[in-house]
Amino acid sequence: MNTQNIVERLDALESRFALERLSAAYNQAFDNRDEALLRSIWHSDASLLLGDAFGNYTGIEAIIESAHKNWQQMPYMHHWMANPLIDIDGDGATGQVALHALVTHVELGPVQISGLYHDRFERRDGRWAFTERRFELHYLTPLANWKPVAGTEAAPQT
Rank of each mutant, 00 (worst) to 15 (best):
L116G: 03
P110Q: 15
Y117T: 11
V103T: 08
N83P: 12
E65Y: 01
G109C: 02
E107I: 05
L102S: 09
I113K: 04
H100M: 01
T104L: 02
G109Y: 05
M77W: 14
A67L: 03
Q96P: 00
Q73S: 14
A93G: 11
E107D: 15
G115D: 09
A67H: 04
A93P: 11
A67P: 05
H105F: 11
I113T: 09
A82T: 13
H68R: 06
W80A: 07
H79S: 00
H118A: 06
I88M: 08
L99N: 10
L116Y: 07
N83V: 14
S66M: 08
Y76T: 14
A98H: 12
E107S: 11
H79K: 01
K69V: 04
A93E: 07
H105R: 13
I86R: 01
D89W: 01
E65A: 04
P75E: 08
D119A: 04
I63C: 06
S114L: 09
P75L: 05
D89Q: 08
L85T: 14
I64E: 00
D91L: 07
Q112Y: 03
I64R: 00
E61N: 15
L99V: 06
A62D: 13
V97N: 03
P110I: 08
L85Q: 12
L116S: 05
A62R: 13
H100E: 05
Q96W: 07
A93R: 03
H118L: 04
Q96A: 04
L85S: 10
A98C: 12
L102Q: 11
G115R: 13
A82Q: 07
Q73R: 15
D89I: 02
K69P: 05
D119T: 03
H79M: 00
L99R: 06
S114W: 10
H100Q: 07
L99T: 06
P84Y: 01
H118I: 06
I113N: 10
I86P: 02
Q96K: 11
N70I: 01
E107R: 07
A62Y: 14
Q96H: 11
V111Y: 11
L99K: 08
G95Y: 10
A98W: 11
